[in-house]
Amino acid sequence: MFKTNKDMPPCAMSLADMSHNKTGSWRTFKPVLDENKCIKCFICWKFCPENSIDIENDMPKINYDYCKGCGICSNECPKKCIEMVEE
């Protein structure tokens, strides 16, 4: 990464992001989305503290690698179409 001394940063700097840390393993309950009932309001996307709900093809998609299973999406869904299922 650093070829010469001049390339070195003057202070400690981060070298990578945290994506190696798969926080999905913390989960006890898993949110499962019923795509037929979903009205695409994206409230679940808006309130996810881990930003582990992505928008794919105009539909929320839960990223189970990083979802910690807090259940905010299930609690806030106006149509109650996200169910918390025990792992």
């Binding site: 945290m18 994506s19 840390n21 926080t23 913390w26 930003n51 259940g71 905010i72």
Partner: peptide, 12 residues
């Protein structure tokens, strides 16, 4: 904000 942060579940 990337994935894999160390906050508790449901962190405000």
């Amino acid at each position: 904000m990337g994935h894999g942060n160390l906050s508790c579940q449901g962190c405000g």
